[in-house]
Design a protein around this nucleic acid. Structure first.
Length: 645
DNA sequence: GTTGGGAGAATTTTT
DNA sequence: TTCTCCCAAC
């Protein structure tokens, strides 16, 4: 029997042991939100709820895994049987089982952003007369995603698009319709389709809806402030049966509205769920009072919020520091000397993090750290699984698993010199729109139609395919990758990339992961949904090396470190000029600043250079960020120039 | 049809 | 600086 009142504070305990019915937990930063959720799960299980009847929706897969592990430690048993993961992940799970009701095949593939943009590009080329004058694939992709996530018709979004001249609207709609058609033909879904179709399944198929409403006696949602319209609907439907829905979030930390997240979801939650109990968690266990003062003060100016004030529990320590520096290089030097100083104070590198608004803000710092032998890890912009060399290898596996995967086929064949998209299309026709790698007849057809140069490269691949299919090893993945690398890909890497060794290592790591996955098919289906955040922190947890971490603020969501640096706190970069645009709405940027500040436990260092060097060698002066100016000077220690060391 | 060179543009945040 | 796109040569 767990003594909740002993282990949790009064607020947390109230939330964790709340009686059935809708519940909104407003959990400010660092108030033990995860802890509360974990104990809620334990409490439900103690009360006899079967884990299979609990659904836990989280923002990253990593968060889900962490909660499961912690719950297992407390409640034991078969916690692993509970349903958990991101909305995309859970929808994927629904769809794998029931998508035939929407006319899909259960082996549909998930396109990652790169695949999806490539497909959009080919649609543009197909329907647009003057490609030069037409918006690029990323812009078009933005419309498509916006339409999906806000449940708008594509015509509306196109009409509202500022970047699009009126006379191109017709073509724009055509492009989007073709994209939708192509996805259907190829049996693929993009990220948004997972949510859209997941919701359709629940609204259009009464039996599926009833099944899951029956199953999920309790629905728990973490980071509810960052749900979008579709996600909120999904929650509402799933929880409609038992009405046991627990939404946990903090409107101060809504930082994904550009992706369709609408913090009105959390503001209106009590209206949508009458009789909803509300618990506020305001006792902060993470940060020293000096950091909380800065956090509270910085967020105060934003209107339309549930008023919450972080109450410190920790003893007083140092005030946050602000450094005004000359430029990015001096800033990097400043971070470096502060790192040394904190090491002298007994902090490890892994206790520290450097946060910034956008990935490219970290370039100088990476160089400086590298030159000075400070090991660092970084969650970069592209996911590990989105890098070209990984996708090349995965294409082979995808084709093994699904012989109709034209995207994978093209990717694979275009690796051969002398083969481009046209040739691959021609071959695909010749092969009858499918390519079974294990079929000697089809492979012979392929080889007959390859040019001599390409054929020379393909021959060793053919030989190794014969071998692994003879030995029945193809479906295992590991043998396939290793054979492919030996026969062709390692050499290709060496000829194509300077850092071929590093890429080779990535592939080896991938091989290990695939070998440890229960089923190749499942791994391939999930791989598009694994984020670099999931991957990065898994990897760090496994590694014993001591490294400082570099991250965007978005990716630092939900995490904490003893020492936090925030760099480039200057107007135009943070707040980002692009994010604010013309409408001068800086509320979300301010929330982002709040998130950055509240990651810190003991020490917070803000850095604000006076100028920025541009790529062409020019310089651009920078104003101090409004976020620094908004904080009363007496709350911080300020210094002009480099820190002493 | 493919490839590689050269010119040009441009730097948010991510499932 | 780095990536992307376009065009000209194979």
């Amino acid at each position: 029997m767990i003594d909740y009142a002993e282990l949790l504070n009064a607020e947390q305990c109230e939330a964790a042991t709340a009686k059935d019915g809708p519940l909104l937990v407003l959990a400010a930063a660092g108030t033990g939100k995860t802890r509360t959720l974990v104990y809620r799960v334990a409490y439900l299980m103690e009360r006899g709820v079967d884990p299979e009847n609990i659904l836990l929706l989280t923002f990253t897969n990593r968060a889900a895994n962490e909660m499961i592990e912690r719950a297992r430690a407390i409640a034991g048993g078969n916690v692993g049987a509970l349903w958990s993961g991101t909305f995309h992940h859970i929808c994927n799970r629904f769809l794998r089982r029931f998508c035939h009701k929407l006319g899909y095949k259960p082996w549909f593939r998930i396109l990652d952003q790169d695949d999806s943009r490539t497909l959009i590009d080919s649609c543009i080329k197909e329907c647009v007369k003057d490609v030069k004058e037409f918006p690029k694939k990323d812009v078009v992709g933005g419309w498509i995603s916006e339409a999906a996530n806000s449940e708008a018709e594509i015509e509306e979004v196109v009409e509202a698009a500022a970047a699009l001249p009126v006379d191109l609207r017709g073509e724009a709609v055509e492009v989007v319709k073709l994209y939708i058609q192509r996805k259907r033909e190829m049996e693929v879904m993009d990220f948004d389709d997972l949510l859209v179709n997941g919701l359709r399944l629940l609204t259009e198929c009464a039996d599926v809806r009833a099944l899951y409403q029956q199953q999920f006696q309790h629905v728990l949602v973490d980071e509810y402030q960052d749900t979008n319209r579709l996600q909120a609907k999904i929650v509402d439907i799933l929880a409609a049966g038992y009405k046991n829905v627990m939404a946990v979030g903090d409107d101060f930390q809504c930082i994904y509205s550009w992706r369709g997240a609408d913090f009105k979801n959390i503001m209106n939650f009590p209206n949508r769920w009458p009789g909803c109990a509300i618990v506020k968690l305001e006792q902060n266990y993470r940060s020293v009072p000096e950091i909380l003062s800065v956090a509270n003060e910085s967020i105060k100016g934003n209107p339309d919020q549930f008023q919450k004030t972080l109450r410190p529990t920790r003893a007083s320590k140092n005030k946050p520091q602000v450094f005004f520096l000359r430029d990015g290089n001096e800033q990097a030097g400043g971070v470096l000397s502060m790192i040394h100083r904190y090491q002298d104070d007994g902090y490890k590198l892994r206790d520290m993090v450097v946060l910034y608004r956008a990935h490219f803000h970290s370039i100088e710092l990476q160089l400086t750290l590298g030159r000075n032998g400070i090991p660092y890890s970084i969650t970069s912009g592209i996911s590990v699984f989105e890098q070209a060399h990984i996708k090349d290898v995965l294409a082979l596996l995808q084709l093994i698993v699904n012989q109709r995967d034209f995207i994978a086929f093209t990717r694979l064949l275009c690796l051969l010199s002398g083969v481009g998209t046209k040739t691959s299309e021609r071959l695909w026709e010749k092969l009858g729109h499918s390519f079974q790698l294990g079929d000697p007849v089809q492979r012979a057809t392929l080889m007959k139609n390859l040019r001599p140069a390409a054929l020379r490269q393909w021959a060793p691949i053919d030989a190794f395919l014969t071998q692994i299919y003879d030995q029945g090893l193809a479906e295992q993945g590991r043998a396939a990758i290793e054979g492919f690398c030996d026969a062709f890909y390692t050499e290709y890497l060496n000829l194509t990339y300077e850092n071929a060794d590093k890429r080779g290592e990535d592939i080896e790591e991938l091989t290990v992961q695939i070998a440890s996955a229960p089923k190749l098919e499942d791994f391939l289906q999930e791989v598009a949904l694994l984020t670099n955040v999931d991957h990065q922190f898994d990897k760090n947890a496994r590694s014993s090396e001591d490294k400082i971490h570099l991250s965007t603020i978005h990716q630092a969501k939900g995490l904490e470190w003893p020492v936090v640096f925030v760099i480039w706190v200057v107007e135009g970069m943070f707040p980002s000029a692009r994010a604010i645009g013309d409408c001068e709405d800086d509320r979300e940027e301010r929330r982002l600043f709040y998130v950055a500040v509240t990651r810190a436990q003991n020490e917070l260092v803000l850095m604000s250079p006076r100028m920025r060097r541009l790529y062409d060698g020019g310089v651009m002066p920078c104003d101090v960020s409004r976020f620094i100016k908004e904080i009363r000077p007496e709350l911080m220690r300020t210094r002009h120039g480099m820190p002493y060391y």
